[in-house]
């Protein structure tokens, strides 16, 4: 058993170090001998055992005695731990590739590949100032029984469906936006955009404006939407700049303003937010790709994997 452990350990280390490679070869020879029911005549197993016990003996005779007596047992334990940790690492690597986090979809625990957790950061809903990681389980986030018919939609009839719930004021939504756009374009996916005014009043007016523009101008909404996601945040959030922005797109400023301030629009937007809340959304951006929820700005490969149905687990 120690030979197998040594073979794996030195085999991995041997990728980087020539001296470890020699040990790996010795371990391989030993494993080969053992599986062919011959004694391991390189003395490799004894060398490893001697080195380990010697190191322990320097510190504690009792522990050395214990290690010597139960060497095979300890070897098995370490072997099992090694196999377990290897599986764990592979799982982490897979998760990171397909979900952007070692710990699984939307899980914000520590991940060595993404130590800052940037792939899971969201803007908490209703918080006007802070953006950051909110740990919840994605299983509660769902599109079930959620009516998205009032939201801007394009590529209707596409094979795949992408729902992007984002907020113009949220850095993480802004980060995810270009990737979602690219995904929709590449896959010609059915795309539904839902603006969630995550930062309260400051984002409400943009939600209302978006509602009105979508109602009256349909296709032009998408240009407006892109503009808001790509223009300086402070500028677009300043109500004083709304009319200038509307003018830029040749919208009927007066008409849009009337619409924005109308009770009907407010009610409609509130109804939309209520509808979005049914998804159990806890932060923006939240992206649904064929109903699977991705919370936080994931790398593009994550979205691509989801849409290509590369996710097996």
């Amino acid at each position: 058993m120690p030979c197998i452990v040594a073979l794996i350990v030195f085999g991995i280390m041997g990728i980087f170090s020539a001296s470890q490679r020699a040990l790996a070869k010795e371990a391989l020879d030993c494993v080969f001998k053992r599986v062919t029911f011959r004694p391991c005549n390189t003395g490799f197993a004894e060398k490893v055992k001697g080195k380990l016990i010697g190191k322990v003996l320097k510190r504690s005779t009792f522990l050395a005695k214990l290690l010597n007596k139960y060497y095979e047992v300890f070897s098995w334990i370490f072997f099992i731990l090694m196999v377990g940790s290897t599986i764990w690492v592979l799982r982490g690597g897979y998760n990171f590739y397909v979900y952007g986090s070692c710990n699984g979809l939307n899980s914000s625990g520590f991940c060595a590949f993404d130590p800052s957790g940037s792939n899971n950061k969201v803007t908490p809903l209703g918080d006007s100032e802070t953006c950051g990681t909110v740990q919840k389980t994605e299983k509660t986030v769902t599109l079930k029984n959620v009516d998205l018919s009032s939201f801007p939609t394009k590529n209707v009839g596409g094979k795949d469906t992408v729902v992007f719930i984002g907020c113009y004021a949220c850095d993480y939504s802004r980060k995810a936006y270009p990737d979602i756009l690219k995904l929709v374009k590449n896959k010609n996916a059915n795309y539904i955009f839902a603006h969630y005014p995550a930062k309260g009043e400051v984002t409400n007016s943009l939600a209302n404006a978006g509602y009105c523009i979508n109602k009256d101008y349909k296709e032009k909404f998408w240009d407006w939407n892109s503009y808001l996601f790509t223009t300086d945040k402070n500028y677009i959030l300043d109500p004083a700049n709304l009319n200038t922005m509307l003018t830029k797109f040749s919208f009927d400023v007066q008409k849009i303003n009337e619409c924005v301030n109308s009770i009907e629009t407010k009610d409609a937007v509130e109804a939309e937010v209520k509808e979005l809340n049914k998804t159990n959304i806890y932060g923006t951006p939240t992206i649904f790709i064929n109903s699977k929820a991705f919370v936080g700005p994931k790398p593009y490969r994550v979205y691509r994997s989801a849409i290509n149905r590369f996710i097996f687990f």
Partner: peptide
């Protein structure tokens, strides 16, 4: 008994260089 183990342990414990084999 494989005496390699002893030689390695002696080296580990007190830096004793002896030959086994």
């Amino acid at each position: 008994t494989d005496m390699h183990k002893f030689a390695i342990m002696l080296d580990e414990i007190a830096g004793i260089a002896v030959r086994s084999g």
